[in-house]
C-alpha cells in the first residue's frame, strides 16, 4: 500500500475483496464433505493407509508370518507390544522359537509404525479399522495371533509342515496351549529358584571371605598385599551379591508368571 496511490489501493482492495466473496459463494454450493458417522458406518470410506490398529494377517490355513524374533517389541517406543515365545524342537531335531502369544496394547500405541517397518517377515501391519473405543481398559489388550494359528512354513519343506499343522490342529484350540504354557512356566520358575538359591550361597561365602580379608587388612595397615587382597575380595562379593539379587528377582518373576 505504501508505494501505491490512495485510489489505486482502494480499487485494488475492492477487487480483492470481491474475489474473496466469489470464492466463498462458490464454496457455499459445493457438496459438503461432512461424514455423518453413525449412520454411514457401512459405507464410510477410510483411506487404506490410515493407521487404525495393529493386525497380524493370517492366511486361509490360519497361518501367520511371525517368527517370534521380538524385534517389534524392541523397536516399540512405548512398550506396546509383548511377544511371548517358547522353544520347540522341530522334526529334524533343530531348536526353534515359536510364537505363543502376541499381545498388543492398543491404549499405549502411538501409531508410529516402527514395528511394522522393523518386522523382517512383514508379519504385522496397520489396518484402517478406526472404531477402537471399548468400555474397559483391559479390553484394549489384544492378542493378535489367532487361537491355534502357527507360523507359515517355508515352501521348501511342505512335507514337514503338514504333520505339524495336523498335530497342532488336533489339539483343542484354546485350553491346551495354556496348560502347556503353565507347565513350562512352572518348570522355569523352579529352575530359576534353584539358581537364585545357589547364587545367594555363593554371595554369602564371598562376603564372609571379604570380611575376613578386611579384618586382616585393618590389623596390619602397613601390609599392601593384604590391602590388595581385601579390595579384591570386596569387589568379588559385591558382584556376586548383585548377581544373586538379579537371580532372586527373576525367580520371583517366574513364580508370578506361574500364578
Amino acid at each position: 500500500m505504501a508505494n501505491t496511490s490512495y485510489f489505486a489501493g482502494l480499487i485494488g482492495g475492492i477487487k480483492s475483496l470481491c474475489t474473496g466473496l466469489g470464492v466463498t459463494f462458490r464454496e457455499l454450493w459445493t457438496p459438503k464433505i461432512t461424514e455423518r458417522y453413525p449412520e454411514n458406518r457401512k459405507e464410510n470410506h477410510i483411506p487404506e493407509r490410515f493407521r487404525g490398529t495393529l493386525v497380524m494377517p493370517h492366511n486361509e490355513n490360519n497361518e501367520h508370518k511371525c517368527i517370534g524374533c521380538g524385534i517389534c517389541q524392541m523397536q516399540c517406543p512405548n512398550g506396546t507390544i509383548k511377544v511371548e515365545t517358547k522353544m520347540v524342537e522341530t522334526a529334524d531335531g533343530k531348536k526353534k522359537k515359536q510364537l505363543v502369544r502376541y499381545v498388543y496394547d492398543h491404549g499405549c500405541c502411538m501409531y508410529c509404525m516402527l514395528c511394522t517397518r522393523a518386522c523382517p517377515q512383514g508379519a504385522i501391519e496397520f489396518s484402517p479399522e478406526y472404531e477402537g473405543a471399548v468400555f474397559a481398559r483391559e479390553s484394549l489388550f489384544k492378542v493378535l495371533n489367532q487361537p491355534g494359528s502357527k507360523c507359515v512354513e517355508k515352501p521348501a519343506r511342505p512335507a514337514a509342515a503338514k504333520p505339524a499343522a495336523a498335530t497342532e490342529g488336533a489339539k483343542p484350540a484354546v485350553a491346551q496351549p495354556q496348560t502347556a504354557d503353565a507347565d513350562a512356566a512352572k518348570a522355569k520358575a523352579e529352575k530359576m529358584a534353584a539358581a537364585a538359591k545357589k547364587a545367594a550361597e555363593n554371595a554369602a561365602a564371598a562376603r564372609a571371605a571379604a570380611n575376613e580379608a578386611k579384618a586382616a587388612a585393618e590389623a596390619n595397615a602397613a601390609d599392601t598385599a593384604l590391602q590388595e587382597a581385601w579390595k579384591e575380595a570386596e569387589a568379588k562379593a559385591l558382584k556376586l551379591e548383585t548377581a544373586a539379587k538379579n537371580f532372586a528377582q527373576k525367580a520371583a518373576e517366574a513364580a508370578a508368571d506361574v500364578k
Binding site: 466463498t24 457455499l28 459438503k32 464433505i33 461432512t34 455423518r36
Partner: peptide, 11 residues
C-alpha cells in the same frame, strides 16, 4: 458458516 466451510453444521 458451516456451508461456507464445506461442512453440514448442526444436524
Amino acid at each position: 458458516c458451516a456451508f461456507v466451510q464445506c461442512r453440514l453444521g448442526p444436524d
